[in-house]
């Protein structure tokens, strides 16, 4: 049990997909404009990660090694399409603001990375917690980045104005602002890691 908890928590800080592994930065840059977008994207990605990790660890002995990548892609794409259809049906506004980045979860390197590096070598429960941890870590990273960007870029958090009379720093709403925030946070993470060792 203790091991399983470790599998879960490593995705949040020690092997955080965004800040430590630096994977899946494209959607991170694109959808981190607002916290609402970040939560939606995080949930969709976690769902896909969890689903594909479970299925792949279940069928890992059945899939021949030489065609494993196309098999993984089909499995991942299925979960992505399910996530997209559900989002369209139950939250069309979120679907519109995320746009192309929901279908693009298929090529998110975190998902295929976990399938290839973890789920195909480990049993169901371990893969489950690994996928969940990675998904939560990705979601938390997205929320952190988007909270900074939304607050500085529009003076709001989740659409609520926090400080009256604040002059929004528009650059944080643009792609350049995303690069700035991610760069500084990556630097901060490296600094903390250096301090610890």
């Amino acid at each position: 049990m203790k091991n399983l908890i470790k599998e879960f928590t490593k995705g949040i800080i020690k092997e955080n997909p965004t800040f430590v592994l630096a994977l899946g930065l494209c959607p991170t840059l694109a959808v981190s404009v607002s916290v609402a977008n970040a939560i939606g994207m995080g949930i969709a990605a976690t769902f896909v990660l969890l689903g594909s990790s479970i299925i792949i660890s279940l069928v890992r002995d059945f899939i021949p090694d030489r065609i494993r990548i196309p098999c993984y892609i089909v499995i991942i794409a299925t979960f992505v399409t399910i996530a997209e259809l559900c989002m369209k049906a139950y939250s069309p506004a979120l679907d519109r603001s995320l746009g192309i980045y929901v279908p693009l979860i298929v090529v998110n390197c975190i998902v295929l990375g976990r399938a290839e590096a973890y789920a195909c070598k480990n049993n169901l429960s371990r893969s489950f917690f690994d996928g969940l941890g990675m998904g939560v870590g990705f979601t938390l990273a997205l929320i952190l980045i988007s909270a900074i960007r939304e607050f500085l870029g529009s003076g709001q958090l989740l659409g609520h104005t926090l400080v009256k009379g604040f002059e929004p720093v528009f650059v944080f709403g643009m792609p350049s602002g995303a690069l700035l925030v991610i760069g500084l946070l990556l630097g901060l993470f490296n600094l903390l890691k250096e301090k610890r060792t």
Binding site: I63, I67, C71, I75, T78, T81
Partner: peptide, 19 residues
């Protein structure tokens, strides 16, 4: 190989049709 892949695709297609 072909059979495995076809099977996976079939299951995926069925699932998607249902959703």
């Amino acid at each position: 190989y072909g059979f495995t892949l076809a099977l996976i695709c079939l299951v995926a297609a069925g699932l998607l049709a249902a959703v």
